[in-house]
Computed example of a mutant assay.
Amino acid sequence: MAEIDWKEARRYLGLHRPGGTIDEQLEESLHSCGTELEATARPRAVWRRFPAAVEDGTVTCAGMVIPSAYLARHLKNCGEVYLFAATLGAETDRLLRRSAVTQVSRAVILQACAASLLEAYCDECCDGLAREVAPEGLFLRPRFSPGYGDFPIDFQRPLLEALEASKRIGLTATETMMLTPTKSVTAVVGLSPTPWCPPTGCAACGKTDCAFRKG
Rank of each mutant, 00 (worst) to 15 (best):
84 F>C: 07
67 P>E: 00
85 A>M: 09
151 F>E: 00
199 P>F: 02
208 T>F: 14
196 W>D: 04
114 A>T: 11
161 E>I: 08
194 T>L: 10
153 I>S: 06
108 V>N: 04
175 E>Q: 11
101 V>K: 14
207 K>N: 14
132 E>M: 10
209 D>A: 14
104 V>D: 11
205 C>Q: 12
71 L>P: 01
77 N>F: 05
167 K>S: 14
164 E>N: 08
128 G>T: 06
131 R>A: 11
121 Y>H: 15
130 A>G: 13
68 S>Y: 00
67 P>R: 00
69 A>Q: 03
117 L>D: 11
75 L>H: 03
190 G>R: 12
176 T>V: 06
177 M>F: 15
138 L>T: 03
148 Y>A: 02
163 L>N: 08
72 A>I: 02
103 Q>V: 09
173 A>C: 12
153 I>W: 00
131 R>Y: 01
125 C>I: 14
164 E>P: 00
196 W>V: 00
67 P>K: 00
191 L>V: 10
134 A>Y: 02
185 V>M: 10
147 G>H: 06
73 R>P: 00
182 T>M: 10
79 G>S: 03
68 S>I: 00
163 L>R: 09
186 T>A: 11
111 Q>V: 01
131 R>W: 01
105 S>Q: 14
209 D>F: 09
149 G>N: 00
184 S>T: 04
138 L>E: 06
133 V>S: 04
207 K>T: 08
84 F>R: 05
108 V>K: 06
172 T>R: 11
100 A>Q: 15
197 C>E: 03
210 C>T: 07
113 C>H: 07
90 A>W: 08
138 L>F: 02
75 L>Y: 05
111 Q>D: 15
114 A>C: 14
133 V>D: 03
201 G>I: 03
85 A>S: 09
117 L>M: 12
96 L>N: 13
172 T>S: 10
91 E>N: 13
83 L>D: 04
84 F>W: 06
78 C>Q: 03
98 R>A: 15
115 A>P: 02
153 I>K: 09
116 S>N: 04
81 V>T: 03
115 A>T: 13
206 G>I: 12
195 P>C: 01
198 P>S: 02
113 C>Y: 05
179 L>F: 10
152 P>W: 04
98 R>T: 14
125 C>E: 15
161 E>T: 12
71 L>A: 02
206 G>K: 11
77 N>D: 15
184 S>L: 08
200 T>D: 02
197 C>Y: 02
204 A>K: 10
133 V>P: 03
89 G>S: 10
175 E>S: 13
182 T>K: 05
150 D>E: 01
116 S>W: 12
131 R>K: 14
72 A>H: 02
66 I>T: 01
128 G>K: 09
200 T>I: 13
198 P>G: 00
71 L>E: 03
113 C>R: 13
208 T>I: 14
161 E>D: 15
140 L>A: 11
111 Q>H: 12
135 P>C: 06
83 L>T: 09
112 A>K: 05
83 L>H: 07
84 F>S: 05
99 S>H: 14
149 G>H: 01
189 V>I: 15
166 S>I: 00
